[in-house]
Structures are given as C-alpha cells and as structure tokens.
Simulated scan of single mutants.
Amino acid sequence: MTPLQHPPTLRCLMLLEDTTVIVTESLTKIFPGPQGPSEVLRGISLNIGKGEVFGIIGRSGAGKSTLVRCLNLLERPTSGKVWIGDQEMTALTEAELRRARHSIGMIFQHFNLLSSRTAAENIALPLELIGMPRPEIQARVSELLDLVGLRERAGAYPAALSGGQKQRVGIARALASKPSVLLCDEATSALDPETTKSILSLLKDINRSLGLTIVLITHEMPVVKEIADRVAVLDRGEVVEQGRIFDVFTQPRHAVSRAFVQEVLNRDLPEILLPRLAPPGTREPSTPVIWRITFTGPSANEPILSDLVRHFDLSFNILHGHIDYIQGLPFGTLVVEAHGPVAARDAALATLAQKNLTAEVLGHVADTAAAAA
C-alpha cells in the first residue's frame, strides 16, 4: 500500500518520516460574527518539505494570515490537524505548545519590535524569556547581527531604523532560538520594492545556508516568484491550486492563479496592436494570421522561427515578445504575423505542438496592406 492509499492520519505520519516537515490535514477555522459563523478556512491540506520555501498567496480575506497563525497554534483550528516535525501541534497542551514554538520562528508585516529596546535587545528578548545565560545570549545576538548585516546598528532603537532594518531585526529575533521553521506573514508588504528585494535575498540566503523551512504568506506574486519553490493559491478559505512555481506560472489552471500570474507575466496583446486583428468571421482563412507562441524551459533557447521559415517557406513579422526566468528556467511569449499558404501554416502549428510549444491563433490580420507596411 502506498502512502496515498493509507488513511489521512497515518499518511501524514508516514510523510513526516520522509522529508515533509509541515502537514495540515483538513484544516478549518470558523469565527463567530454578528451575521452568524464565518468559515475562514475550509479543509486546508498541505505538505511542506524540509528546507523548502513554500509560498501561500491570496487576496485580502482569502484566509492566508489565519492559516499561518493556525500552523503555530496562535489560532486554534476549529477542526483538522497540524504537524510540525514529528509533533501533532493540535494535540499539545498549552505548556507543550510553548516549548514547541521554540522551533518555530515568525516575522510580521509591521515588525512588532519593542520601541524601548535597541536592535540587539530586541533580538535577545526570546532568549531571555527561555532563561539562556547572559554570555550565551550576547554571543548569539552578535552572531545574528552579523547574519542580517546590522552589527553597526546594534545599539539603535527602532525609531532610528529604516523599514528594511527593522525587518532585519525581526528576522534575527525570529532566528534567535535556532528554529527549524520560519513563518513569514506579509513580511515585505510594508517595504518599498528595492528593500523588498534585499529582504527576499536575505531570506533566500538563510534558507540555503541554514536549511530552514520557510512559509511565506503574501498577496504579491512577484514575491512568490522571487523566492518560493512551491506555492498554494488560496481563495475564500480554500486551496484552489498548488504546485511548483514554474508550473503554476506557466500553466495556471484556476482563474485566481491566472489573475495573479497576469500581474507578473502580462501575456495580453498590447492595446496598440489590437486594431491589427480582424473581427471574427470577417477575413478569409488565406489572410496572414497572428499567433502567440509560448516558450518554456529548453525550447526557449531553440531557433524556432528560423526553423519554420526554412522548412515551411513561411515568413514572420514579430509584433511583440517577452521573456522571463522562473526558478532559473526561461519562459517567454512571442506574438507574430505568419505569412504563407494555409497548409504550410497548419503544418508549422503541428510541428510546434510536437516540440511541446503552445501556439495560440489570436486571429487574422485586419488589413493586409497595413500589415505589409
């Protein structure tokens, strides 16, 4: 019997014995309200691997912040189970939870620093709370200040720090007790784009150097694209899609996922080119046709158009193009006018399909003379 064929609870335990570090099973959360109960999470089941950066993305109200707070039981789920490591968090007493949270760091959108404490003192706080000896605290704080690049700001109070520096203090504080899991709740939402990039770079370095599992809650798809290995898309308290970042970006299946991807990889035909498309049914099939060719992975490095010109005696007018890199793999689109006999164009489309390339027929050219010009 394979793990997927076992009952859910046993399956979760088997996965934990492998490389999975966080498991949620049928997680629900219901809040009371003046209009009646509100179900914020609806049966969330996730497996997050050891050393993985896992993104959870959703619009405001999708339930993502509630979900991350259920992982460390700051919010207790209404039903369902949570495992972190080999511990079933939902079965622990409050005293056991306090001990278990030492292995779970958390950083927040608005930093949550104590204004009366310096950067170094903020980092030291969780170590003081667990009774670590002062010399060990000082050594650990010094190490963390170096890790986040703030040694020269150790004595500065939060009011004297920039947003990026405050978040670096927050990251250092979250790492103080050497956790195996780091939960990030909208950690870059209050930062400008340049600072966001530096914080994501720091998190990526921490993930690689410490082997830390990072769960990244965000409503910004560029953040997920920059750092995550896999992503779960939340909508109205449900996971509507999850998978590798490259797969979700290049082949989003759900409307919510497609909307998020569109914000990063705009594949729409530019408005200035729309007049080139003839209204449906108004042109003969023999007129030039407009294709959008999608390149993924190794195919992005092949001379596709020159091969089509050589083998099918077609000619192309390139109208628009874009290429990006997702997890180090190229992904691009190219919009072209294809000129040539209908049979040759059909044969070229078949060849593209054989090469696992997507070619969409957007329409025929509205004005052949204008296209030629």
Rank of each mutant, 00 (worst) to 15 (best):
L113I: 11
S79C: 06
I171R: 10
E263D: 14
L4T: 09
I217L: 10
L129G: 07
P133I: 02
L67D: 04
H219N: 09
D346Y: 00
R345V: 10
I214Q: 05
R117V: 05
E39W: 07
A176Q: 07
A370E: 15
L13I: 12
E226Y: 13
L357D: 01
P270H: 04
N266I: 04
A159P: 02
L73I: 12
N112S: 14
D146E: 15
R42P: 01
D313C: 09
D205T: 07
M221R: 06
R42Q: 15
A371S: 15
L97N: 00
G243I: 06
L319E: 09
P126D: 11
A100E: 03
Q165L: 11
I57N: 12
I171G: 10
Q87P: 04
D192W: 11
V248R: 08
P279H: 13
E284G: 07
A350C: 08
E302D: 13
L352C: 00
I130K: 14
A120F: 10
A120V: 08
L349P: 00
T294A: 12
S189G: 12
A347E: 12
R42E: 09
R117I: 01
L67M: 08
F246H: 06
Q262Y: 04
G58P: 10
P8C: 06
F249I: 12
E284S: 13
P330F: 02
A350E: 14
P252D: 04
A347H: 03
D18R: 15
S60N: 12
L175M: 05
E337Y: 00
L352H: 01
S115G: 14
F260R: 08
M221T: 05
K204P: 00
A174R: 07
S315W: 09
R140T: 08
T93I: 05
I171F: 08
L144H: 08
K197L: 09
L269V: 09
E360N: 10
P193I: 07
V23H: 08
P330Y: 02
G170F: 03
H254K: 09
H6L: 14
S38W: 07
Y157A: 00
L15R: 13
K29V: 03
L27S: 02
L114D: 11
L113H: 04
A176I: 03
I217A: 11
E271A: 13
R99C: 10
G80V: 01
D307R: 14
D185C: 10
L27D: 06
L127I: 08
L362E: 02
V248I: 15
G43K: 05
Q138L: 14
A371L: 12
I56E: 01
M106L: 07
G297S: 06
T66P: 05
T118Y: 02
V365L: 11
H339D: 13
E241T: 02
I323F: 15
R173H: 04
W291T: 01
H110N: 15
P34F: 06
F246P: 01
I227H: 06
R168S: 04
G55R: 09
I30F: 03
A300G: 01
T118L: 04
A228W: 05
P126N: 10
E152N: 11
T282C: 08
Q138F: 10
L273N: 07
